[in-house]
């Protein structure tokens, strides 16, 4: 093991270095900052939805159905006379909660699995990664579809399904640096000091993995929100009358010939959130990748 460690590449980015790189990225790459700002605004809009909304998102008013955008209804009304703008705000809550909780739990579980597989190696690694690869082979949407179909459509089950589709990715991302760090001298020193495995993994390996994992989390949050919207569009999302972006598009799609804005506004909302997260994640990935660093 000691022979190997001499050939190991230079130290990986520690968390301090990561922070420095992130700061530099925000300074040099304005688009990354733009992504962060857009996402923060959407987050605030979701949190303060009750204050920002102009109507109750669930109250139906059949006299005002299918109205175009106006001063009273900023983005028009749907087939039940509900205000689209207010429904969009409340829909953001569902999308962000499902995406956020799913990715957060997938990040914790996936990282743990990846570190364990990478740290122990051998049979443990083989079994875990084989299983991981099977899950990775399925398209996210198909896997999510099946899981929600089996469990039934609800907020909790959506979170489970989306989380399950993201775990293998995190495991893979966390495993790669673990294998490299495992061979370094300071881990050898920890072992010589008699530290237990969990202590080495949590306090000495985890900090070397976090930057990669966090960057991918921002990109996969985008995927998670897109998957949530797709499942809702198919009809497997949080049940109506709750406002979900995918569900709003599905309802709007039935009136697409006469009232295209019903699908356009929620569609643009999804696009905006996913795009802002991709912008943010993309910039951060460049920041930690020495090959593409902006000079």
């Amino acid at each position: 093991m000691t022979e190997k460690s001499e050939n190991m590449p230079a130290p990986l980015s520690s968390s301090a270095l990561f922070q420095e790189q992130v700061k530099r990225t925000f300074r040099s790459n304005k688009l990354t900052g733009l992504g962060a700002v857009i996402f923060l605004l959407v987050l605030l809009a979701a949190v303060f939805a009750p204050l920002l909304s102009t109507h109750d998102p669930l109250i139906q008013n059949i006299l005002d159905r299918l109205e175009g955008p106006s001063a009273q209804f900023w983005m028009g009304t749907d087939a039940y006379g509900r205000d689209i703008y207010s429904r969009l705000l409340y829909g953001a809550r569902i999308s962000l909660t499902i995406g956020g909780v799913a990715i957060l739990s997938a990040m914790v579980i996936g990282t743990a699995i990846g570190i364990i597989a990478g740290y122990y190696g051998g049979k443990v690694d083989d079994v875990i990664m084989q299983f991981n690869d099977i899950l990775l082979a399925f398209p996210t949407l198909i896997l999510g579809l099946i899981v929600v179909a089996m469990l039934g459509p609800s907020m909790q089950n959506m979170i489970i399904a989306i989380s399950l589709t993201s775990i293998p990715g995190f495991a893979r991302i966390a495993r790669a640096p673990t294998i490299v760090v495992r061979e370094r001298d300071f881990i050898e020193a920890c072992r010589a000091l008699g530290y237990r495995d969990w202590r080495i993994m949590v306090f000495h390996i985890l900090p070397n993995v976090t930057s990669e994992v966090l960057v991918m989390a921002s990109l996969w949050l985008a995927t998670a929100i897109r998957t949530e919207a797709s499942l809702s569009f198919i009809g497997l999302g949080v049940k109506p009358p709750a406002a979900t972006w995918g569900g709003m598009i599905r309802e709007g799609f039935e009136n697409i010939l006469d009232n295209p804005w019903l699908s356009i506004f929620p569609g643009l909302a999804i696009l905006l959130v996913v795009f802002s997260l991709n912008l943010l994640g993309d910039g951060l990935r460049d920041a930690i990748d020495p090959k593409t660093r902006v000079d």
Binding site: A222, R226, A229, S230, F233, G246, I249, F253, I256, S263, I264, G267, I270, L271, V274, F275, N278
Partner: peptide, 10 residues
């Protein structure tokens, strides 16, 4: 960033 069904509808 486009979900396939949004670009399809557009």
């Amino acid at each position: 960033s486009f979900p396939a069904f949004v670009s399809a509808i557009l």
